[in-house]
């Protein structure tokens, strides 16, 4: 069975406070602990996505993201609904993850009034046209990477100015054709959250940089409420700001059907 490791953005799959570590664990252990976090059964986040192009021009989109943890043989579910701008208001995007098969993605365009399946299940593909990937949002396969702890500053200074001990975890993709074969993540030891990362392309050039700019607890769960992903190659940037987050709402599968997608 596939297990997704919410390894770094950890926004849709938030984390609970972790037990502090008495001894330095191995890289695999760090990866496993991050993967094993309790991230809530379901969630509903309202957010603003700001997309900066290479000229510095910004487009803003408001969206609501609902997610539900895997239930039995079903995989995770995610429904994204765009609230603004006006011309794409109501556009919806539904993802069904399948543990043993390719994910399914559905799209609802109000102008057409019909649901369409969208093919393509690459986890390293762009998430709704942003600099983030599905993998960044939904987590990554633990077994698809090998891990090493690498040297780096021992502390990370958070947005509040406080310093926190961190590990530097290098993940290398096992697949030879991964678009981003190497990621070096900064993992906060106290909450097991990835707060920064450098993502390298096939030429081993730093292609993207991820950074958490604000953290806040909702319903006892730490959530990155401000983050940015910079694409150095394309000279673009995406910033996400979470305005509201709620967890364990009791969402059911009915909230993630194609019919639900058609009902803005």
């Amino acid at each position: 069975m596939r297990r997704r490791q919410a390894i770094w953005v950890s926004m849709l799959l938030p984390v609970t406070l972790a037990v502090s570590q008495a001894q330095a664990p191995s890289a695999d252990e760090v990866a496993r602990r991050v993967d094993a976090r309790d991230t809530g059964r379901d969630s509903r986040l309202e957010m603003t996505m700001r997309l900066f192009d290479r000229q510095g021009r910004v487009r803003e989109r408001a969206l609501v993201v609902q997610a539900m943890r895997a239930q039995g043989r079903e995989g995770d579910r995610m429904l994204v609904r765009f609230q603004s701008p006006t011309d794409i208001r109501g556009t919806g995007f539904l993802v069904w993850e399948h543990p043993d098969a390719d994910d399914e993605r559905f799209l609802y365009l109000p102008a057409l009034g019909r649901v369409r399946r969208i093919a393509g299940a690459e986890t390293q593909e762009s998430f709704v046209g942003s600099d983030l990937t599905y993998e960044d949002i939904g987590g990554r396969e633990l077994d698809h990477y090998t891990y090493t702890l690498v040297q780096g500053p021992s502390a990370w200074t958070g947005p509040d100015g406080q310093s926190h001990p961190v590990w530097h975890l290098e993940s290398r993709a096992r697949a030879a054709d991964a678009a981003y074969p190497r990621v070096v993540s900064v993992v906060r030891q106290d909450i097991l959250m990835i707060v920064a990362a450098d993502i390298f392309n096939r030429r081993n050039e730093r292609e993207k940089s991820y950074e958490v700019r604000a953290l806040r607890q909702f319903d006892g769960i730490w959530t990155a409420t401000g983050l940015s992903m910079v694409n150095h190659g394309q000279r673009t940037r995406t910033e996400l700001t979470v305005t509201t987050a709620r967890y364990n709402l009791g969402l059911t599968a009915a909230a993630f059907t194609r019919r639900a997608l058609e009902t803005p």
């Binding site: 365009l109 102008a111 969208i118």
Partner: peptide
């Protein structure tokens, strides 16, 4: 003819990398 339809169709096209 509809600006919304154009916007949404381009939005669909731009969903993938």
């Amino acid at each position: 003819d509809s600006p919304e339809a154009v916007a949404q169709e381009l939005f669909v096209f731009g969903l993938s990398d």
